[in-house]
Write a protein that binds this DNA or RNA. Structure first.
Ligand SMILES: [Zn+2]
Ligand SMILES: [Zn+2]
Ligand SMILES: [Zn+2]
Ligand SMILES: [Zn+2]
Lengths: 135, 135
DNA sequence: TTACGCTATGTAATAGTATAACATTACAGT
DNA sequence: ACTGTAATGTTATACTATTACATAGCGTAA
């Protein structure tokens, strides 16, 4: 349910935070982002949180509520996107982003039925990714 | 996806924490629970967190990841339950728990297709409840 | 009984996450 | 220049969660 208007121009801080998340191989906490940007002059959590707020609003970054962490959106910029869902591997920490119109459609339908005016949704699966299963 | 075996006997601390959540009219943070139980002798966060861990494992309490808060399960004890989903009103703070087999079924199907071994899921909707909408 | 293992508990200290408050800078439109 | 808005810098603080260690209760095997 990102607003994700036309491709936004990022400020310096936003671009740095976004870059850190794009380069990361998995989700990062705000403080992990901060540590990776100290060489670029970052010194306080708020520099990260303010950039993250914007990036999330733009739809370029997603917040993983069950991890208190953030990931770069895996979709191409501007690509229309159902509200994203995530599968988080408890073994390797890998995150798979997916968008399933049937799932989000069902949730929207539930909201409609319940007269709940929907503005956002969090869908996060936990378990083991294919690579991390032994048998 | 609670394990929720046969009705568990709660320890004193677990019963106190559960009672506080049942009496509350909405979700409570762990520290709000703590404050409500100081008269009963609670003094440290860990007393609350340890009880919450058990209650969540029993399926008697749910954690709301997007709020860092906890609610008593709205279903009767022992009642079989699909993994719960929640609609959280951003205006009044009210939470509606629901369980929709179609939604959870779709998520399980996605996991199956992706060879993701599912152990839990978080489904939280945000918006305005019917009572909080003006028009 | 005693000893052992397991669960629950008490308490203090610390780690991790997020925001409030205030000062400053940049820049567009008038 | 004046004004309004958005972004930034910085310090301090609030909120959430866990580590570490000590203690107590209880069921059971020796
Ligand atoms: Zn995305
Ligand atoms: Zn994995
Ligand atoms: Zn429930
Ligand atoms: Zn409401």
């Amino acid at each position: 349910m990102s607003v994700a208007g036309k491709a936004p121009e990022l400020t310096r801080n936003q671009a740095l935070v976004h870059g850190a998340l794009v380069r990361a191989d998995g989700p990062l906490s705000a403080y992990e982002v901060l540590d990776r940007l100290r060489e670029q002059g970052f010194k306080a959590p708020l520099q990260v949180y303010r950039a993250l707020d914007k990036l999330v609003a733009f739809g370029l970054v997603h917040r993983l509520e069950s991890l208190n962490a953030f990931v770069a959106c895996s979709h191409a910029e501007g690509e229309t996107e159902e509200p994203a869902a995530f599968a988080i591997c408890d073994s390797c920490g890998g995150v798979t982003e997916f968008a399933d119109a049937r799932i989000t459609g069902d949730l929207k339908a539930w909201a409609e039925t319940d007269r709940f005016s929907l503005t956002g949704m969090t869908i996060e699966l936990r378990g083991l990714c294919a690579a991390c299963q032994t048998g």
